[in-house]
Nucleic acid binder design. Sequence first.
DNA 1: AAGAGGTACAACCGCGTGGTT
DNA 2: CAACCACGCGGTTGTACCTCT
Length: 252
Amino acid sequence: MGRSPCCEKAHTNKGAWTKEEDQRLIAYIKAHGEGCWRSLPKAAGLLRCGKSCRLRWINYLRPDLKRGNFTEEEDELIIKLHGLLGNKWSLIAGRLPGRTDNEIKNYWNTHIKRKLLSRGLDPQTHRPLNGCATFAGTQQQEAPATIAKPANSGDEGRSSGASVDEDRFPDLNLDLSISLPSHSPKRSPPSEPSATAAPAATTSANSYTQPICLCCHLGFQSTDACGCQTNPNSQSHVYRYIRALEEGQHIN
DNA sequence: AAGAGGTACAACCGCGTGGTT
DNA sequence: CAACCACGCGGTTGTACCTCT
């Protein structure tokens, strides 16, 4: 049982990276580009695991990293995105140029969690801590639960935040699901018959589905991470967060 | 000044997933 | 279609640094 180790443990360094190792990694990637992490350490003359090299590059050495303190805007964006996506740090990082998932994850655990607690909000659910409907009850009381669970909804413990709802962010309709732009019968594992269920972006009888790109809905401009505007007819198999429109609502 | 406790962050680990054979 | 492989992700840990007493 158990999987084979990702690399030979015997002759690999662990722990903090030295300057020399950093230089070797940077030089190699500059010369050969990213990719094939497994063979990279050997080729670059590093006594490191490929995973370790990848992590070091992505989280620390990449030239486009911003580093430095998070701004207030970034804080709020992270909170909103976490409310939407849960602990999907890589997705959140995708919306914050120059930030890495690891950095955001750490920042969340050390700063934002506390910030939300001080606001009386549960960092995981974004709901008021005392459980009473201080403001959650003030909105959308009549709205049925229209949230379709995300793809990994079976894994509640990991991303419970993804199931939070729109009452935390009245300006955002958080009715989300993960969907494919076009039907893909290949996906959707049998164990989760409807969770991934892309086409059914809603479970509400009162609403109908119409995909909206989350990026656009959040007000982001078309970027490399979101090609929906540059290529609206794209049939590429890219997961997109979509939400269901409520009755009477329409796309601008 | 020194030790204890708290905080921040880099790095590791195990698992899930997609691609290839 | 199953097995294998490599990559990427999220949770967790280790440790250096900071603050308080």
